[in-house]
Design a protein around this nucleic acid. Structure first.
Length: 596
RNA sequence: GAUCCCAUAGCUCAGCUGGAUAGAGCAACGGUUUUCUAAACCGUAGGCCUUUGGUUCGAAUCCAAAUGGGAUCACCA
């Protein structure tokens, strides 16, 4: 039932029959609103075959189509643009085939791919911030989109639960914590641990200042800071399984996990498989050995191992230190191989900020050189940083927008706005709480997902996120209006109890045809979003749909339409649009309320 | 120094697989509610698509360079 495909075939046929030439698949674009028609075929590229002027060629093709394809009801040729009108029957037929339900995805791949989507990947020394919010929403949404296109998706998270940064928090807590716990302070665990990360930094800096005032250079001061030495010792103790350090580590990480859990829950994201770096950080050494045997990797005089990527326009990259210990990329090599062995993925998508573009380029190239076939399925979903007006966020200095606080603020704003507008007054308190969350978090999620992932984005905390215009609340509002219509229809008359059963052939208004075409385009958009890993395409689609509907709603009577068939058709159209809005929003991880 | 990413209305962004007169939202100004939820709708105003050159019948879109902004180039993670 793909009209573009049908048209394309007929046009190829037309060229064959009219001009005796063969052409490849042709493409169409949406006819400009200034001209009559639904789809436009541009003939300029094919004039060599027709050996006629653009206008004549377009006219001849148009005539052929109208004679040989029943779906084509009209055409006009302007210069080289052939504007094709598809008859209402086709569109209505398509619409009836959906029949008031969510649009089914029509081209699920015959062999579903297994796709791992890694996202979030937090450090356990501080709470999640705005940057993580973008990461989480993006990863979650991409996973949902890939699922919707028929893939088997495994959402994974690799938690960086070990390293010097955690030791800093641990040390500071040990020294200045006075035994504080989440229970004793009422603080969320991740925030409590984050507090001591900042304490460490403060103490460390004042120590450096002190050492410098004693006459040491900056470099010497850094090298001789007792606090940093202690932290490093703690890391060594951790690696050597020192019981006390491990106990402290387990306790504090436990606090953090509890905190993360509630943040993830509030955000509405989840994972199928969680890895911990404390389990994976030693992986990868055997791969290095293999690589050395194959002579792909080289050993330096000091015993360190590296790979020479200069021929590929990159640098030499060290993979193992002289003392035999791992570096960051060693473990990434190891986890990639482990995942390939365990999960047999076709694709592995790393949702990580664009500051690591180089790292992933190197990682993928090394794996490829080592001969892993699945390395072609690796993809770095690189997204731009979230910046504040004053520049980059620095968690050590506490200049971050905290995820928990931001979400709460959004919910508060949603509550205030709802009250101000005097809306939803008949809901219970529980329902209201849920509504505020749906609207507030919806606004936040949409705000972050509607922007092309690869672009960096500016977040100004002073200007609150909008609730009007191109926003989630606007889209949600249109969904709610539809639900209100449907409710009223059912209450008003038993004739409308089952709107789904009605199939009507009516004369379409231009706006109605436009809306059906929009619905028809859902699958194309979904496919493209999956192909490009871009939730922004879905966001733009659903906004367009809601906006068109909003105009329609204002222009055309629905429940007040006197012709019953027409009223039913319009209700059915509204219902289908409602389904599509909901489905699209869910792909973005956004809920829609029934009332607001 | 090298590499990568970005540049479209005052602001935030679409448009990028070349096509017809470059689109939204916000902000500004004016209008619409005894009638299906006004978180809405309609209208006005706002543009050298950073610049220059190239490819093409045709360039915001592709190529090259310049300018400006960001990131990266650790035996850190």
């Amino acid at each position: 039932m793909n009209i573009e495909k049908k048209l394309s075939e007929k046009i190829i046929e037309a060229f064959q029959s009219l001009y005796g030439g063969t052409i490849d698949n042709v493409t169409f674009e949406k006819t400009s609103s200034d001209f009559k028609g639904d789809l436009t075929f541009v003939v300029f590229n094919y004039l060599k075959l027709s050996k006629k002027s653009p206008e004549v060629t377009a006219n001849e093709i148009g005539t052929y189509l109208i004679q040989n394809l029943t779906e084509v009801s009209d055409f006009n040729a302007v210069k080289g643009f052939l504007n094709i009108t598809i008859n209402d029957f086709f569109w209505l037929n398509y619409f009836n085939s959906i029949n008031g339900k969510a649009i089914p995805f029509d081209s699920a791949p015959p062999n579903p791919s297994t796709i791992m989507v890694e996202y979030s990947s937090p450090n356990t020394n501080k709470p999640l911030h705005l940057g993580h919010v973008r990461n989480n929403l993006l990863g979650y949404s991409v996973a949902e989109i890939l699922k919707a296109t028929g893939n088997h998706v495994i959402k994974t998270n690799i938690v960086n639960d070990r390293g010097i940064h955690i030791c800093k928090s641990m040390l500071a807590w040990q020294k200045w914590g006075n035994g504080e716990t989440p229970e004793s302070t009422g603080m969320k665990g991740d925030h409590l641990v984050g507090k001591y990360y900042v304490v460490f930094d403060k103490q460390y800096k004042s120590q450096i200042t002190e050492l410098k005032s004693e006459g040491l250079s900056e470099e010497q001061a850094i090298a001789n800071s007792p606090l940093m030495k202690e932290a490093q010792q703690m890391l060594l103790d951790w690696e050597n399984n020192n019981a006390d350090v491990r106990k402290l580590w387990t306790m504090m990480n436990g606090w953090v996990y509890k905190g993360f859990e509630s943040t993830y829950k509030m955000m509405g994201v989840d994972f199928d498989k969680i890895y911990y770096e404390s389990n994976t950080y030693l992986l990868g050494k055997n791969i290095i050995e293999e690589g050395l045997k194959k002579d792909i990797l080289k050993r330096r005089a000091d015993n360190s191992v590296y790979i020479d990527l200069t021929a590929d326009g990159l640098d030499e990259k060290t993979l193992l230190r002289g003392d035999g210990t791992s570096v960051y990329i060693t473990q990434d090599l190891g986890t990639a191989v482990q995942r390939a062995d365990e999960d047999h993925f076709n694709k592995l998508i790393y949702t990580v900020g664009n500051e690591q573009d180089y790292h992933f380029k190197v990682l993928f190239l090394i794996l490829k050189k080592l001969g892993y076939e699945w390395a072609d399925g690796l993809f770095h979903l690189s997204y731009g940083m979230v910046e504040l007006p004053e520049g980059k966020m620095k968690s050590r200095e506490g200049t971050v927008v905290d995820a928990d606080e931001l979400m709460q603020e959004m919910i508060n704003t949603a509550a205030a706005t709802t009250k101000e507008l005097g809306k939803a007054t008949d809901l219970t308190n529980d329902e209201l709480e849920k509504l505020y969350r749906t609207i507030g978090l919806g606004a936040l999620k949409y705000f972050m997902l509607k922007i092309d992932p690869k672009k960096k984005m500016l977040f100004n905390p002073a200007e609150s996120i909008d609730f009007n215009g191109n926003t989630a609340p606007f889209i949600q509002f249109n969904y709610v209006r539809i639900q209100a219509l449907l409710r009223k229809a059912k209450e008003g008359s038993s004739d409308f109890a089952d709107i789904d059963l009605v199939k009507q052939n009516v004369e379409l208004l231009p706006k109605e045809k436009e809306l059906i075409i929009k619905l028809y385009n859902f699958n194309t958009t979904l496919n493209q979003a999956a192909k490009e890993y871009s939730p922004a395409l879905i966001a733009n689609y659903v906004y367009d749909l809601a906006k068109e509907y909003s105009q329609y709603y204002h222009e055309i009577p629905i429940l007040k339409e006197e012709l019953k068939d027409l009223m039913l058709f319009r209700l059915q159209l509204s219902k289908t649009i409602g389904f599509t809005i909901k489905k699209s929003m869910n792909l973005l991880g956004i809920d829609v309320p029934e009332r607001m």
